[in-house]
Design a protein around this nucleic acid. Sequence first.
DNA 1: CGATTTACCGTAAGCGGTTACATAGACCCT
DNA 2: AGGGTCTATGTAACCGCTTACGGTAAATCG
Lengths: 344, 344
Amino acid sequence: MATGREIAQLCGVSVATVSRVFNQPETVNEETRERVLRVAKELDYRPNESARALSTKQSTMIGLVWDTDHRRPGWRHPYLQDLLIGLKSALSAHGYHLLMLATSGDAREVGASLADPVGYVNMTRRHHLGGLVLIDSGSDAEAFEAFAQSGVPCVALDVAVDGPRATYVTSDNEGGALSAVRHLVGLGHSRIATITGPPGNQPSEARVSGYRKALREAGVEPRDEYVVAGDFYRASGTAATHRLLALDEPPTAVFAASDEMAVGALLAARAAGLRVPQDLALVGFDDIEIASVVDPALTTVAQDKPGFGVAAAKTIMAMITGAGREEPVVLPTQLVVRDSCGAR
Amino acid sequence: MATGREIAQLCGVSVATVSRVFNQPETVNEETRERVLRVAKELDYRPNESARALSTKQSTMIGLVWDTDHRRPGWRHPYLQDLLIGLKSALSAHGYHLLMLATSGDAREVGASLADPVGYVNMTRRHHLGGLVLIDSGSDAEAFEAFAQSGVPCVALDVAVDGPRATYVTSDNEGGALSAVRHLVGLGHSRIATITGPPGNQPSEARVSGYRKALREAGVEPRDEYVVAGDFYRASGTAATHRLLALDEPPTAVFAASDEMAVGALLAARAAGLRVPQDLALVGFDDIEIASVVDPALTTVAQDKPGFGVAAAKTIMAMITGAGREEPVVLPTQLVVRDSCGAR
DNA sequence: CGATTTACCGTAAGCGGTTACATAGACCCT
DNA sequence: AGGGTCTATGTAACCGCTTACGGTAAATCG
């Protein structure tokens, strides 16, 4: 790897000039500029990032806080891959890399864990990171608040945080739920239940809220026994459905706050000898791959998966460039009608 | 962020001593060492990584080469999330971070693309990366060869590369296919077809090889018309199955080289009025989530998903620490018998 | 008891850039 | 012609850390 000094010597200029050629090209004479550029190209010169970061106190890296561990298998994000594709490629367009921060995995205190957001914040300073993207890996919501307060630019995904340089991106969960339940209402259902995500989870609560709103809109009073808590996973969908079906007046339709739970509900219905959608209509949320492959194919509320990552990238870049904070971004959702709701 | 100099002043020692406390603790007097450590702790001192990397010419980051772009949706890895979980958390245990390298997304020449592995190699030097992990995102196999030759430590996933500091990790694809087809043979099938991955894809070819071996072992001569090419995606599985069923002597069992294609086959069979497994037995490969949810549940060959990442992490760390190259690692696969093969 | 280790620590030179400041010539003006 | 601008470049300090080298005092040795 060629260094700036080598270029300088070959061109008969000082290192300062070489540096200027790349950082303030307009301040250097055209002729020497071209000479430097030509030599630089020949030697395939790239400024050393460590040196540059040390000197300028900023790098071209964004930190990703995603607290997972293969030894304690936990929360699986419904569409992490698409999100990452969007995030990474939008960041790339700005010349930024994505640094997946190490969590303190073992005795050697290497980093941080969400129990200690300070560790991450320090890490962003140590590496001169431009900012942080926070992916909720279960129940990190409270911890995220600490990040938001720290003053480092950060954008959280699906967790509403607020801070001097912090904001978030999320889907229009309420709107999505609203349109899902409206759809069910439109199909003639009035005994509509919902299976929620874990208590405290914000998207889940917004979905419940949309559910309620749609019912009221239709003039049906939400019943408490029709709102049963799940945890986004399949098994909880099955369990919840069993409970719902055991009610004196069981629902004729179920809106599940995740596709996984909707699949669980499907299994429960099948086990109970009910046909979907004839005996029980089903709508999910997320539009993960499974949704289209299950039988009957799941009607569901689709989220803009790569758009999530792209929005996060745009927002964090805006916060790095500008000085303040950005407005939260709410991505539109879209109802995808398939077979499980009985519309076809 | 406290700097080494501050610590030094507060302790009345030189910065050199502070540095030694962290890098060669045994060379500094116990009393002063503890004093330094105490003050460092109070100020929550962490050495600046840029400065450290600049000075030592090595960072605690591993580069991830994963060539994707949300504007050209391409190859979706069957189990990227689990792989990343394994990779990230195993790397964390060594105190390393994972840097997802930017690809040159736009006009501003920021990085590299697989057409230009040199760009990535330069990037690893610029950032003083310890090494590279290469994830195949379609047909990068040839490009990976260039990485392998470059001399930077790298481990490729599912692509056999060889170089002075390069190796790879893959599943026992042949063995997995072997056990899958053996299983089919054991169930009485002899007209067994296979749907392969894209030509040139190494795991796919190993699976075909395992398929052939199992047939020969059972005394049945593989027929060319029973080997039809897919691309790992669902649609290709459907198309391939249609072709197979149109044969004069259609197969009674199909081994698909991916679960996605197996699902596609399932749809084709259903469309043709065939019952699975009674009329057509089906085995897939990967054991992705869909496999267990589809009806009938898919018998498939499971790969050790987080194990993949963990193995990659271990291998790259070994290559960084040691000087030479490591042996390729082949992860065991396991046949998961469910309903689509007719064993139950 | 002088010479030689040994243990500990400070000095200073990097690492490869960036940038404030100084300098030097070219140009313009009165 | 002398002074003021402007342009283009060099000088050198600095970013924060590592480490080769040297020095000092205590410990060891003959």
